[in-house]
Computed example of a mutant assay.
Amino acid sequence: MNFRTRLLTLAAAVFLAACATPTPQIDRTHVSENQDSRVQFLILHYTAIDFDKSLKVLTTGGKVSAHYLVNDNPVKTYQLVDENRRAWHAGASYWAGATNLNSASIGIEIVNPGFTETPAGRVYAGYPQSQVDEVIRLVRQIVQRHQIRPDRILGHNDIAPGRKQDPGPAFPWKQLADAGLIPWPDPSLLEVRRAVFQIVPLPDVPWFQQKLAQVGYQTPQTGVMDAATREVISTFQMKYRPTNASGEMDAETAALLDVVTTPGGMITRLPVPGTPDTRTDTQTNGRPDNRSPY
Rank of each mutant, 00 (worst) to 15 (best):
R4I: 14
T5I: 11
T5V: 12
R6H: 10
T9K: 10
V14M: 09
F15G: 09
A17N: 05
I26F: 14
T29A: 11
V31K: 11
E33H: 15
E33V: 15
Q35H: 14
R38E: 13
L42F: 12
I43M: 15
G61M: 04
G62I: 03
V64F: 05
V64I: 14
V64M: 10
V64C: 07
H67Q: 11
H67C: 10
H67E: 06
L69H: 09
L69T: 09
N73E: 14
N73G: 08
V75H: 12
L80I: 04
L80R: 06
L80G: 07
E83S: 14
N84T: 15
R86T: 13
A87L: 05
W88M: 10
A90P: 00
G91W: 04
G91I: 01
S93M: 03
Y94P: 05
A96W: 03
A98F: 13
L101S: 00
N102Q: 02
N102V: 00
S103L: 02
S103C: 04
A104T: 15
I106N: 02
V111T: 08
T116Q: 14
E117P: 03
G121E: 03
R122P: 01
V123D: 10
A125I: 01
Y127W: 04
Y127M: 00
Y127R: 01
S130N: 13
Q131E: 13
V132A: 08
Q141Y: 06
Q141T: 13
I142F: 09
H146N: 14
Q147G: 07
P150I: 01
P150M: 02
P150A: 07
D151R: 08
R152S: 05
I153F: 08
I153P: 05
L154K: 03
N157V: 03
N157I: 05
D158T: 12
A160D: 04
A160V: 00
G162R: 05
P172Y: 06
K174D: 11
Q175G: 00
Q175Y: 03
Q175R: 13
D178L: 11
I182M: 00
P183L: 02
D186F: 02
D186M: 04
D186R: 03
P187N: 05
A195V: 08
F197D: 04
Q198F: 01
I199T: 11
L202P: 12
P203K: 08
V205E: 10
W207C: 13
F208E: 12
K211A: 15
Q214D: 11
G216W: 09
Y217A: 08
Y217C: 07
P220Q: 07
V224W: 08
M225S: 10
T229R: 00
E231L: 04
S234Q: 15
T235E: 02
Y240R: 04
P242F: 01
N244L: 11
S246N: 07
E248C: 02
M249K: 08
D250E: 03
L256Q: 04
L257R: 01
L257A: 04
L257M: 05
M266Q: 04
I267S: 05
T268D: 03
R269C: 00
R269F: 01
R269I: 02
L270S: 14
L270Y: 12
P271G: 00
V272K: 15
T275I: 02
P276S: 08
D277E: 12
D277H: 14
R279C: 09
T282I: 09
T282N: 10
T282H: 06
T284K: 07
P288V: 02
S292Y: 12
